[in-house]
Simulated assay, not measured.
Amino acid sequence: MAEFIKNKYIKQETTKYKKIFANLPKDRLKIATGLIERAAFMAASLKELEAAINEKGYTDEYQNGENQRGTKKAPEVEIYNTMVKNYTAAIKALVDMAPEDSGLDPEAAAILNHIAKRK
């Protein structure tokens, strides 16, 4: 993903999350802003990693010396797996910040709760 496109996607994701969490109390919104920015970056990075995995595949071949060869998990897959967990944790933290009567759009809250429960 080109840097310009990635930055544009990050901005779109940031805007989307800020709209969803706009009704948080001001003290929580200050904390949430950092998480929103991290979640947006991770969403864009995950999209980038997905494209790399689709292009290169899930495994890499390796050779250690003359006789030792095999396949291993591609580095992009390992990074992706770690980042998905971190993204899920960030979304869960954001959802947990929102009190029941926070005014979150019910559909958005349901989607975010679903994402936060997935592992």
Rank of each mutant, 00 (worst) to 15 (best):
E55W: 03
A90K: 01
S45D: 08
K6F: 09
K16C: 09
L29Q: 06
A22Y: 02
K18W: 07
T82S: 14
L112Y: 02
Q12V: 03
K92H: 11
Y62P: 01
Y62G: 13
L94P: 05
L112F: 09
T71E: 10
R38K: 12
P75K: 06
A40T: 00
E107F: 11
A32M: 04
T33Y: 03
A74T: 03
Q63P: 09
M97E: 02
T71F: 14
Q63T: 11
A110D: 13
L24F: 12
I111F: 08
K18D: 06
E37V: 09
T82D: 15
A98M: 07
A51Q: 10
E50N: 12
I79S: 10
D27V: 07
E78Y: 02
I91T: 13
E61T: 14
N7D: 14
K11W: 01
Q12S: 11
S102P: 07
E100D: 12
T59P: 00
Y9G: 12
G65D: 06
M97T: 08
R38Q: 12
K72E: 14
P75N: 15
I115E: 04
K92S: 14
P99Y: 15
K92N: 14
Y58T: 15
V84H: 11
K117E: 14
I53R: 02
A44Y: 00
S102L: 02
D105H: 14
L49Y: 00
N23S: 03
K117Y: 06
E50L: 03
A43T: 04
R38S: 15
K18G: 06
E48F: 09
R38C: 06
N7Q: 09
S45E: 04
N67E: 14
K72T: 11
G70E: 08
I20F: 02
E76M: 07
R28C: 06
E37T: 13
K117T: 15
Y87W: 11
A52I: 03
K92R: 13
D60T: 06
T33E: 13
N81Y: 08
K11A: 12
Q12D: 13
Y80A: 04
H114L: 10
T71A: 11
F41R: 03
Q68R: 14
